[in-house]
Structures are given as C-alpha cells and as structure tokens.
C-alpha cells in the first residue's frame, strides 16, 4: 500500500541510544552537566559520557534511591545532573527521592528512564516500566517527556538541559522508525501534528507514534481521515491541541505503551472533559503485566500495532455516528 503520509518510517536507533549520544553533546557544550548511573550504563548508553567525561560521571552501583538524591544534591549546588537507569528502577525505586529531594524543593534534576514499556522484550515484566508516566506525572512540578524517535530524543534532551526544574524523560530499548527530519523544532509542552485529518484524532507517544502514522495510512485507504498528533510532552499537556482535536474531529484515540488506566490517555480524557466533549478510545496495557518474548511478538500480542490503533479509530468513528 503506498503511503498517503509523507513518512517513510525508515529504521532508526532506539531512543536510549539517541539519549546517550545527546548526553555527550551536552557534556561538550556545558560543563555543568553531570551524569549518574546505577550499574546499567552500557544499557542506558550513558557509558560514552562516562568515558569522555570521567570526572563528571558518577557510578552509583545498584542503589537508585541514593543515586537520585545525590543528583538532587548536585542540582542544589548548581549542576545539571542526569540520573539514569531502567525506567522501572529509577522511577519506582527512586520515586520517594524524586518526590522529596527533587520535586518538592524544585531542584534542577533530570531523571531518564530507559527500557520503558513492554517492547524491551525477553527480560520480562520485572524490567518493564508500564507505570513510569503515571508516577512521573504525579510528581508536582515535574515536566514529563516521551520522545518518539532519534531526532525527538536528541532535541528534547537538549531542551531538558536548558529548562530549569525537575524533569523526566522516557526512553525505550527497541529501535524506532525515523519520523522527524533533522530540522524539526521541539518545544516542551507543544504537541506536534504529524498528519492532518478530520474524522478522528490519533494521539500517541513514544514508540506508538509511528504505529499511529501507519494506522492513519490504513484508515485513509478506507476513507477515514485521521489526524495524528505526537504528544512528546506528557506534562504539561498541550491543552489547545487536545481541545482543537476534540472540537474538529469529535473522536480521539490515545495510544501509549503504558498502563491504560494511569497514563497519557486518562490525562487527555481529563482535558477533553474540561474543554470539549469527544468520543474516546484507548490503546495500552490493561491491568496486567506482560511476559518474556521478542519485542515484535509482545507488541503483537498486547495490541500495540497500527492495526490495533486503526481498529480503535473505526470504533470511535462508529460511536460518533450513533
């Protein structure tokens, strides 16, 4: 099927790799940037920063709570610390420290969780973070970012370093298709409309953005005009983009690699309820933990494909007509 959209979606690197690369650029540009890791630097891709800037890289061992609070101490003394681990560990094990030592005093700490969602594959549910967006959004004052590809991650890591305040970035292990051109501008809190459409809006974040673009192609062939919006910022939400989508398309599908009851979808629904009514459908993990398997097998089994997004869009459009 020829793509209706302009997106070729060629294979690209995982966002964790893009994060590691951007950190090195930051390290060169800004001597205040320091990096802390908890024995996963080869997997989070912070190792290269450590190699190039050893005096600004602190290996904390398998002790995420301590890592986060040391980062907060460095931030309180004027540094720009990036603390990194698997999302399941930095967010869940460091949550109390993110709350009391970073969010509450509003220090300039950046937490980065890699290996988010179920697309990490074979390692299984203990390593999969399916609640990190929810936890991060529950930290008052935090900015929460969830980039969809290499360009998005690179630009948003730079934006994160420029922004003053506590912030969380969600990264993935799986390779992501390339969505953005190198000249794409990113602004924290400003969603990006990727595909124009009038019948339904597909709101997605992270790995699901590419699936939403593919879903728009499928729907176009069926005569359904689907708008696609990348919510790279989960908090603060782009309320205008949501209200506009609700008003102009009347139906919204939200797709995220996260528990469906506490992530981007429910946050969007809250804004829809506050601004303009719309039919909504949700793609996510439903009250369970996943399992071992290849990333592709897991994405198929748990319903994270373009076909799933398209099916949800059809349901939404049908409900709208009732």
């Amino acid at each position: 099927m020829p793509a209706k959209t302009k997106y070729e979606l060629k294979p690209g690197p995982a966002t964790r790799e893009s994060f590691g690369k951007a950190l090195v650029e930051l390290g060169t540009a800004n001597p205040a940037v320091v990096v802390l890791d908890a024995d996963l630097s080869k997997s989070t891709y912070t190792a290269e920063f450590g190699k190039q800037f050893p005096e600004r890289f602190f290996e904390c061992g398998i002790a995420e709570a301590n890592m986060v609070a040391i980062g907060a101490g460095l931030a309180a003394s004027g540094k720009i610390p990036f603390v990194s681990s698997f999302s399941a560990f930095v967010m869940n094990k460091g949550f109390e420290q993110l709350r009391v030592t970073a969010a509450f005093p509003n220090v300039n700490l950046k937490a980065v969780g890699t290996h988010s969602g179920i697309s990490i594959g074979e390692d299984g549910p203990s390593q999969m973070s399916i609640e990190d967006l929810s936890l991060a959004c529950s930290l008052a004052g935090f900015v929460v970012l969830s980039p969809a590809d290499d360009v998005a991650m690179t630009k948003l890591v730079h934006a994160a370093a420029k922004y003053f305040g506590p912030l969380f970035i969600r990264a993935g292990r799986a390779k992501c298709p390339v969505i953005y051109g190198a000249d794409q501008k990113f602004e924290i809190g400003k969603a990006i409309e990727l595909v124009e459409g009038t019948d339904v809006t597909l709101i997605a974040t992270g790995l699901l953005v590419a699936e939403a673009i593919r879903a728009a192609d499928i729907l176009e062939a069926e005569g359904i005009s689907a708008r696609v919006i990348d919510f790279h910022t989960i908090k603060p939400l782009d309320r205008d983009a949501i209200a506009k989508a609700a008003k102009e398309t009347g139906a919204i599908v939200v797709a995220e690699e996260h528990l469906v009851d506490s992530g981007l979808g429910v946050r969007i629904a809250q804004v829809v309820a506050e601004t303009h009514p719309a039919i909504m459908e949700f793609i996510g993990i439903h009250n369970t933990y996943a399992e071992s398997g290849s990333p592709d097998e897991l994405l198929d089994k748990y319903g994270f494909r373009a076909s799933n997004v398209a099916a949800a869009a059809r349901r939404a459009v049908a409900r709208k007509k009732k």
Binding site: N66, A69, S77, V100
Partner: peptide, 22 residues
Amino acid sequence: ASTGSLGEGLSLGLGMALAAKL
C-alpha cells in the same frame, strides 16, 4: 535542603560535596 523523609540527607550532602570538588 528540605528534609523530613528519613534517610535522604546523606545522599544530598554527598551531591553537594561532589559539586564542591568539581
């Protein structure tokens, strides 16, 4: 520092001490 949740102050102090060394 804002403290009150026990066990966190020494980590914060270490961060400040590291910053001083840098």
